[in-house]
């Protein structure tokens, strides 16, 4: 009996539609997040992460309905992130059926928000999403900083110090994205992931850079990730969830079959 490493497909959504593209042959509407989530769940995904990149207020209402629809058909854990700024936002998402919320920019703006959220709703549902970028130059000791607004705003906050603080404040999990690797398909930033994973007691989800199945394996074995998150390799059916699990299992990683 061993805990399985988790594979988490991520849906980026805008105004209730999956963006970044999804290509499933046997799906009616590849932009419908409910269909996509259900499809991943049936394929053996261990969790679903739904990232809302909608800007407008009306769009946020749509998101609540989308989360509701996913939660009534998908019976694996569902994390919702993007634009979570207030305790009311969290309550709305949990009431809609989310199991966890991912807090990113709002934590940087007001770190106490994470403490309040964990006290009110429990650490088990508070994921702190961290966008980190390497700031050390070649030859220097590795150092990463936290960025917000999709990697545009440098905060000057050291990534390792930040995750320790967030866990102390009650974060139950860290969703760690390397801004250097996001979208590159050259693999996770393993040194970053390992440093973060060793710095905290809570599980760390590796994100950013997956281009093939070996990258998932490396994320677990070398990056010491407890879960691996990927979007495009699954969306475009380059690989199925089952292929990913078989590949990981063949290299000795415990997965849920």
């Amino acid at each position: 009996m061993t805990l399985a490493k988790r594979i988490i497909p991520c849906l980026d959504c805008e105004n209730g539609r999956v963006v970044k593209g999804v290509k499933f042959l046997d799906i009616r509407d590849a932009g419908d997040p409910v269909e996509v989530a259900k499809r991943y769940c049936d394929a053996g995904a261990d969790e679903i992460t739904f990232l809302d990149i909608t800007a407008s207020h009306e769009g946020r209402e749509t998101t609540v309905h989308t989360v509701e629809a996913i939660a009534s058909q998908v019976f694996i854990p569902l994390t919702v992130g993007g634009g979570i700024r207030t305790l009311e936002d969290i309550r709305a998402m949990l009431n809609a059926g989310a199991d966890k919320v991912a807090i990113n920019t709002a934590a940087v703006v007001n770190p106490d928000f994470v403490r309040e959220a964990a006290q009110r709703f429990g650490s088990q549902c508070i994921v702190v999403a961290v966008d980190a970028k390497q700031v050390s130059r070649e030859g220097e000791a590795l150092k990463w900083e936290i960025f917000t607004h999709g990697g545009r705003n440098q905060t000057g906050i050291d990534a390792i110090e930040w995750v320790k603080r967030m866990v102390e404040y009650g974060a139950g999990e860290i969703l760690l994205t390397s801004m250097d690797r996001d979208g590159t398909k050259i693999g996770f930033d393993l040194a970053l992931n390992r440093a973060v994973s060793r710095a905290v007691l809570v599980p760390v989800i590796a994100s950013g850079g997956v281009g093939n199945l070996q990258h998932l394996v490396d994320g677990v074995l070398e990056g010491e990730a407890d879960a691996v998150l990927a979007a495009s390799i699954f969306h475009f059916q380059e690989y199925s969830i089952q292929e990913a699990k078989q590949f990981m299992a063949a290299q000795g990683i415990e997965v849920r079959s």
């Binding site: 061993t2 805990l3 139950g172």
Partner: peptide, 10 residues
Amino acid sequence: LKVPHMGWNQ
């Protein structure tokens, strides 16, 4: 082992 025990176990 990380705490919480989070994920799928037998």
